[in-house]
Amino acid sequence: MEVRPEGLYCVPADAFVDPHRPVARAIVTHGHADHARSGHGTVFATPETLSIMRTRYAEAAVAGGVALAYHQKVEIADGVTLWLAPAGHILGSAQAVLDYGGSRIVISGDYKRHSDPTCTPFEVVPTDVFVTEATFALPVFTHPPIAHEIDKLLRSVRTLPDRCHLIGVYALGKCQRLMLALREAGYEETLYVHGALVKLTQLYEELGHDFGRWEQVADLAQGERDALRGKIVLCPPSALADRWSRRLPEPLPVMASGWMQIRARVRQRRAELALIVSDHADWNDLIRTAVETGASDVWITHGRVEALEHALKQRGIRAKALNLIGRDEEDAQ
């Protein structure tokens, strides 16, 4: 493996994993924009990830797509077998498993261990080398169960029935996970969404998920907007404070993200309610997972690499930082 300007490169496979510049052969772990760029030649990915890329970019962006179901093996170069294992991050997210000359490397992409009905749960794949993210790799990050955070939200909706609860979520994954979690908590009201969240939510529905009744805010007539008091509206984080939100009746800005554990981050967003909902592994899960894979070597791609490196070394694992560029932690999705 090599770190090149385009991204992480696997020499015997002649392929990049999640390259951030167009390359001839790419393995894409999942559909988030910082991992799945357009313009590659051949793209190895799960069928769901390819569908997401098709929805986000043009059809032509993934003309060279090779769909690999989880556990389906393909020899992508002489003696190099590739297969994908579930990563539990978002719909279709995968770890890339490369077997070559009797040894194995697993590139986990982004992953989490907390429950998420929108995607297949993370699977531990025994390996020699484990490549991990470190987005939330500090002991201060412990993600609570999502049910706890949904409870917090619903309590606020009940206590402040005049306020329209406006939740900032990423369009891919977080939005749909939250919608399903609300339904699981027994919330039966119509959910309202910002236009930017529509296409991907529809895609999830096509792929078999049921979010109950939901509507686009823009479809409501001017006069009907007041009906949004006491209701839940989902929007991209950037829309929380922009002009769009002023059309809503007394909006209460809520932000759902793993960063919301840190008070200063909540204030930065001017959120009045913080839901700690993360699609990444928290501190304990990052360490637990690295240990469970049995890897002798762990390479850390992005995030708070120093702390994870330190903690893994203490456990007798050879850990090193890859210093991948192009992953801005603040935007990590």
């Binding site: 500090l138 201060v140 990050f141 840190i262 008070r263 200063a264 708070r304 330190h310 203490q314």
Partner: peptide
């Protein structure tokens, strides 16, 4: 708590009480 992990956490959070509360 491990000293270095505490130092990294404190650096990141920027405030003692909050760091301790979380970690």
């Amino acid at each position: 708590m491990d000293e270095e992990l505490f130092a990294l956490s404190y650096d990141y959070v920027g405030e003692l009480s909050e760091t301790v509360a979380l970690a």
